[in-house]
Amino acid sequence: MHSKKTYTLQEATKKLEHYCAYQERCHKEVRQKLETMYMIPEAIDTIVVHLLKHNFLNEARFAKTFVSGKFRIKRWGRRRLTLELKKKDISKVNINQALNTIDKEEYIEVFNALAEKKAHTITETNVFKKRKKLIDYLLYRGWEPALVYDKANALIK
C-alpha cells in the first residue's frame, strides 16, 4: 500500500519556490504541480498568491521567455507559439506582448533559412509532392500560410 506524501503549507511553498526559480513557469503548471502534491484548493491559492507576490511567478515574463526560446531553438512560427501559449492559459495581452519581442527581420531570416534547409533535405522527385512536404513541415511549425506558400512556390518549381 502506497501512502501519498503530504506537505505542510511551508514545505509546499518552499518546494514551489525552487520549482519556479529553476525555470519560468505559468500559473497552470504551478497549479498542476500543487495538485500532484495533493494540496487542497485553499492551500493552492495561498501558495500561488505568495509566488506572485514574491515575483517567482510572472505570466508576462513566462510568455516572453517561452516565445524567445521556442522561436530561437525550435524555430516555431507565430501561429504555433500563439497556440501553445493559449494551451497554457496565457492571456491574449501577454501573448501579443511576447510575440512583439520577435524582431521582424530576424523572423523572416529564420523562416527563410529553415525553409531552404528543409527544401534541400527533401529527397522526393515529384515536384508537387516535394512542395507539399515542405508546406506541411512549415505549417506544422506554425509559420503563416501566406509566407509558407510563397516560399514553397519560389523554392520548388
Rank of each mutant, 00 (worst) to 15 (best):
K64H: 02
E124F: 02
A154M: 05
Y22K: 15
V110R: 03
D150P: 00
R31S: 08
W76V: 01
L155S: 11
A152V: 12
L81P: 04
T36D: 14
D45C: 05
N94S: 14
K74H: 13
M1D: 08
K157L: 07
D45Y: 04
M37I: 06
V148E: 07
C20G: 01
K151L: 04
L155T: 13
K28N: 09
T8H: 08
K74V: 00
K74S: 14
T65Y: 07
N58T: 11
K132A: 14
R61Y: 03
A113D: 15
S68I: 01
S3L: 12
G77D: 03
K151S: 12
S68V: 01
K4R: 12
V48F: 00
L16N: 11
N58P: 07
M39R: 11
Q97L: 10
T8W: 06
Q97N: 11
G69M: 09
D136R: 09
N58E: 14
T125L: 12
M37K: 08
T123V: 11
K5V: 15
E24W: 03
E144C: 00
A43Y: 04
L134S: 09
I73L: 12
I108N: 05
Q10G: 03
M39A: 13
S68T: 13
N58M: 10
Q97I: 04
H54M: 02
L16G: 09
I122F: 03
E109Y: 08
L83I: 04
D45L: 08
R31P: 00
H120Y: 03
N55G: 04
L139A: 06
T6G: 13
L83C: 07
K70L: 13
L34S: 10
K133I: 07
S91K: 09
G142C: 09
F111R: 11
A154Q: 15
